[in-house]
Design a protein around this nucleic acid. Structure first.
Lengths: 220, 220
DNA sequence: GAGGCTAATGTCAGCAACTGACAGTTGACA
DNA sequence: TGTCAACTGTCAGTTGCTGACATTAGCCTC
């Protein structure tokens, strides 16, 4: 229930049936949410659309919000994989940057195995415009952050609790990532390439924004 | 209802009574929350402790979470004030840093007018250990961020939508702030001075963490 | 200081998100 | 084929939250 759509296809009939129900719930939920709004959609309606009881919905997802982030779980797992794969001698921020940009390149296919990509994109925007989901999204992000900080610390042979730099860097990094996502959501470009490019651009602005006096361009 | 405890003391009896009810609700709620936990405490219990109806609680606070952040509202307003007061020729990050550190210096008194300071400190830790409140806290933070980004942009004579630097800087800045708060909450020092010092230290680590290769110390 | 105005509050009914308990159904596997 | 365990449905109950309407209690005018 916790694992985000395992890579190895399920073997038994029971497993396959479970997978189908789960995917159907995700698809129905996102379809309804994006169409008539998150708050305006009832669990009962989702359950009815998939023809299961309300109780069953809650056996697949702990709460209403969780179904929204089921696909995000997959995406994040992919990013972590990419980060693991970065060369060990790369500086921390470069590794993060590289992992994000590489991940964006082939995330589309992974998503499509569960829902249409455009539905995922619409869901992304819905999240950014629904207060309750913004909150949940942010909380999930910080949990991911902690995981990333641990990873960066290990790469550099540090202890996260003794040296603040891993957490500080990751906090700054994901702050920038979040703003990129938000700005993309407000714009009109709904392609994967669009958000990838925005991400790249914002990350490249990060250093200068901190280092320099914006008016004279001098380093502080 | 929206304004966080106005500075000017209310004049009429009706106003004073309202203020008292509001403060009593905040105090009772935080007392119960910190004692037996946020989820485990019912709105009915809070209302009963103050001897008002449940409906009245919801006339003062839109939802269960809002009462938790009533005091934070005050603190944030103070920070914004300090930021306004910074000299115009100060570089952006310096202004943010200065405003935070100055604000910490005299926030204690402002809090004490509503609840005991130690209750506020306990509440802070409770927030950091309650998933639903972490989420709400983060969402509030991003709203504050947007406000700060606008302010920084105005200082520098920029447009937030045209130039990404204000939002990028503020995102990185508040990411670091959040980590400082979190680490403080996990530690044993529960003084205001403690979190102020941690804040200062982390902000000073921000530049180096981004600029340099941590192993050789070289700038990238 | 009596009476009308209105803001604040109480009461009640109802919806929706969840949860626990128990019973029925259906794959898995000997 | 029969037994076991996993999955699902049903039902009853709690809690957060809202709208409608009646009631109370400051405020203000005459």
């Amino acid at each position: 229930m916790a694992d985000p759509t395992p890579q190895t296809p399920p073997t038994g009939l029971r497993e396959r049936k479970k997978q189908r129900t789960r995917d159907a719930l995700i698809r129905a939920a996102l379809e309804l949410f994006t169409e008539r709004g998150y708050e305006a959609t009832t669990i009962d309606e989702i359950a009815e659309a998939v023809d299961v009881s309300q109780r069953t919905f809650f056996r697949y997802f702990a709460n209403k919000q969780d179904v929204v982030f089921a696909v995000q779980d997959m995406v994040e797992a992919r990013f972590i994989e990419e980060l693991h794969a970065r060369p060990a001698d790369e500086p921390p921020l470069s590794a993060l940057r590289g992992a994000v940009l590489t991940a964006w390149d082939d995330i589309g296919d992974a998503i499509a195995s569960v829902i249409p990509v455009d539905l995922h994109m619409r869901a992304f925007r819905m999240i950014e415009s629904t207060p309750a989901l913004i909150a949940a999204h942010l909380r999930r992000s910080t949990e991911l952050e902690e995981q990333i900080a641990q990873l960066i610390a290990r790469r550099e042979g540090l202890d996260v609790d003794a040296d603040p730099r891993p957490r500080v860097l990751v906090a700054a990094f994901s702050g920038v990532m979040r703003v990129a996502g938000k700005v993309w959501g407000e714009g009109h470009d709904c392609s994967v390439a669009g958000i990838r490019e925005l991400t790249r651009s914002y990350l490249d602005h990060m250093g200068p924004a901190i280092e320099t006096d914006w008016r004279t361009g001098r380093s502080r």
